[in-house]
Protein backbone atom coordinates (compact mmCIF):
# COMPACT_ATOMS: atom_id res chain seq x y z
CA UNK A 1 0.00 0.00 0.00
CA UNK A 2 1.33 3.40 -0.93
CA UNK A 3 1.93 5.99 1.74
CA UNK A 4 1.35 9.70 1.57
CA UNK A 5 2.52 12.62 3.64
CA UNK A 6 -0.05 13.78 6.20
CA UNK A 7 0.26 17.18 7.90
CA UNK A 8 -2.39 17.29 10.58
CA UNK A 9 -2.41 20.49 12.54
CA UNK A 10 -4.61 21.91 15.28
CA UNK A 11 -4.51 25.62 16.03
CA UNK A 12 -2.18 25.24 19.01
CA UNK A 13 -0.22 22.10 18.26
CA UNK A 14 0.85 19.67 15.56
CA UNK A 15 -1.19 16.46 15.82
CA UNK A 16 0.63 14.36 13.25
CA UNK A 17 3.26 15.10 10.64
CA UNK A 18 4.54 11.93 9.00
CA UNK A 19 3.74 9.24 6.42
CA UNK A 20 0.26 7.70 6.59
CA UNK A 21 -1.62 5.00 4.69
CA UNK A 22 -5.11 6.38 4.95
CA UNK A 23 -7.23 8.96 6.74
CA UNK A 24 -10.98 9.25 7.13
CA UNK A 25 -12.65 12.47 8.15
CA UNK A 26 -16.07 14.14 8.41
CA UNK A 27 -16.80 16.88 5.87
CA UNK A 28 -19.79 18.94 4.80
CA UNK A 29 -20.42 16.24 2.17
CA UNK A 30 -20.36 13.38 4.68
CA UNK A 31 -17.56 11.15 5.86
CA UNK A 32 -14.81 10.56 3.31
CA UNK A 33 -11.67 8.44 3.16
CA UNK A 34 -8.41 9.51 1.55
CA UNK A 35 -5.68 7.23 0.20
CA UNK A 36 -2.44 8.02 -1.60
CA UNK A 37 -2.58 9.63 -5.05
CA UNK A 38 -5.78 11.53 -4.37
CA UNK A 39 -6.58 14.33 -6.77
CA UNK A 40 -6.16 17.94 -5.68
CA UNK A 41 -9.09 18.99 -3.57
CA UNK A 42 -10.12 21.46 -0.85
CA UNK A 43 -13.00 20.69 1.51
CA UNK A 44 -14.42 21.94 4.80
CA UNK A 45 -14.04 19.63 7.80
CA UNK A 46 -16.95 19.53 10.25
CA UNK A 47 -16.83 18.52 13.94
CA UNK A 48 -16.44 14.77 14.39
CA UNK A 49 -13.81 12.05 14.48
CA UNK A 50 -10.73 11.82 12.29
CA UNK A 51 -9.10 8.40 12.08
CA UNK A 52 -5.75 7.90 10.40
CA UNK A 53 -3.66 4.81 9.79
CA UNK A 54 0.05 5.51 10.07
CA UNK A 55 2.73 3.86 7.92
CA UNK A 56 3.27 0.87 10.25
CA UNK A 57 -0.45 0.03 10.31
CA UNK A 58 -1.37 1.55 13.70
CA UNK A 59 -4.59 3.51 13.87
CA UNK A 60 -5.27 6.65 15.83
CA UNK A 61 -8.46 8.63 16.41
CA UNK A 62 -8.89 12.26 17.43
CA UNK A 63 -11.99 14.38 17.97
CA UNK A 64 -11.91 17.59 15.95
CA UNK A 65 -13.93 20.75 15.45
CA UNK A 66 -14.33 22.80 12.25
CA UNK A 67 -11.47 22.95 9.82
CA UNK A 68 -10.10 22.51 6.36
CA UNK A 69 -8.75 19.63 4.25
CA UNK A 70 -6.38 20.21 1.38
CA UNK A 71 -4.80 17.66 -0.95
CA UNK A 72 -2.06 19.19 -3.03
CA UNK A 73 0.12 17.07 -5.32
CA UNK A 74 -0.31 13.96 -3.19
CA UNK A 75 0.31 15.72 0.15
CA UNK A 76 -2.58 15.95 2.56
CA UNK A 77 -2.98 18.88 4.92
CA UNK A 78 -5.66 19.03 7.62
CA UNK A 79 -6.15 22.24 9.59
CA UNK A 80 -8.61 22.14 12.48
CA UNK A 81 -9.51 24.53 15.31
CA UNK A 82 -9.19 21.93 18.02
CA UNK A 83 -8.05 18.32 18.11
CA UNK A 84 -8.31 16.23 21.25
CA UNK A 85 -7.84 12.56 21.94
CA UNK A 86 -10.95 10.94 23.41
CA UNK A 87 -9.42 10.68 26.90
CA UNK A 88 -8.41 14.36 26.89
CA UNK A 89 -11.90 15.61 26.09
CA UNK A 90 -13.38 15.40 29.57
CA UNK A 91 -10.46 17.13 31.15
CA UNK A 92 -10.52 19.97 28.65
CA UNK A 93 -14.23 20.51 29.17
CA UNK A 94 -13.88 20.45 32.93
CA UNK A 95 -11.09 22.98 32.72
CA UNK A 96 -13.20 25.36 30.66
CA UNK A 97 -16.04 24.96 33.15
CA UNK A 98 -13.63 25.89 35.90
CA UNK A 99 -12.54 29.03 34.07
CA UNK A 100 -16.13 30.05 33.52
CA UNK A 101 -17.03 29.48 37.15
CA UNK A 102 -14.10 31.59 38.28
CA UNK A 103 -15.24 34.45 36.08
CA UNK A 104 -18.78 34.24 37.38
CA UNK A 105 -17.49 34.24 40.92
CA UNK A 106 -15.55 37.43 40.24
CA UNK A 107 -18.65 39.25 39.07
CA UNK A 108 -21.09 37.77 41.55
CA UNK A 109 -22.78 40.50 43.56
CA UNK A 110 -25.42 38.89 45.72
CA UNK A 111 -24.81 36.16 48.25
CA UNK A 112 -26.87 33.77 46.18
CA UNK A 113 -24.74 34.39 43.08
CA UNK A 114 -21.62 33.78 45.08
CA UNK A 115 -22.97 30.55 46.50
CA UNK A 116 -24.01 29.30 43.06
CA UNK A 117 -20.73 30.21 41.43
CA UNK A 118 -18.58 28.68 44.14
CA UNK A 119 -20.62 25.46 44.01
CA UNK A 120 -20.06 25.36 40.26
CA UNK A 121 -16.36 26.00 40.78
CA UNK A 122 -15.92 23.19 43.27
CA UNK A 123 -17.78 20.78 40.98
CA UNK A 124 -15.50 21.70 38.10
CA UNK A 125 -12.40 21.30 40.26
CA UNK A 126 -13.41 17.85 41.45
CA UNK A 127 -14.09 16.80 37.86
CA UNK A 128 -10.61 17.93 36.85
CA UNK A 129 -9.10 16.05 39.77
CA UNK A 130 -11.01 12.92 38.81
CA UNK A 131 -10.06 13.07 35.13
CA UNK A 132 -6.40 13.59 36.00
CA UNK A 133 -6.49 10.51 38.21
CA UNK A 134 -8.12 8.51 35.44
CA UNK A 135 -5.37 9.67 33.10
CA UNK A 136 -2.59 8.34 35.23
CA UNK A 137 -4.04 4.83 35.59
Amino acid sequence: MDNFRLHFMASDHMVFDDDAQSVSLPTTEGSIGILAHHSNIIMAVVPGEITYRVANGDEDTVIVSDGLLKVENGEVMILVDTAERPDEIDEARAQRAEERAREELKRANTNRDIALASAELSRAMSRIKYSKKKHRV
Binding site: S11, T27, T28, E29, S39, N40, I41, I42, M43, A44, V46, D66, G67, L68, K70, E72, N73, L79, D81
Partner: peptide
Protein backbone atom coordinates in the same frame (compact mmCIF):
# COMPACT_ATOMS: atom_id res chain seq x y z
CA UNK B 1 -2.16 24.43 -9.06
CA UNK B 2 -5.81 23.78 -9.73
CA UNK B 3 -8.04 22.51 -6.93
CA UNK B 4 -11.44 20.99 -6.88
CA UNK B 5 -13.71 22.50 -4.22
CA UNK B 6 -16.32 20.29 -2.59
CA UNK B 7 -19.13 21.28 -2.58
CA UNK B 8 -18.07 24.78 -3.71
CA UNK B 9 -15.71 27.59 -2.79
CA UNK B 10 -18.37 29.58 -0.99
CA UNK B 11 -19.30 26.86 1.49
CA UNK B 12 -15.72 26.05 2.29
CA UNK B 13 -14.84 29.71 2.69
CA UNK B 14 -17.78 30.45 4.97
CA UNK B 15 -16.62 27.79 7.43
CA UNK B 16 -12.97 28.70 7.30
CA UNK B 17 -13.62 32.35 7.87
CA UNK B 18 -15.02 31.67 11.33
CA UNK B 19 -11.78 29.93 12.29
CA UNK B 20 -9.90 32.86 10.90
CA UNK B 21 -11.91 35.27 13.04
CA UNK B 22 -11.08 33.24 16.11
Amino acid sequence: TVFEYEPDVETVLERIIQSYMV
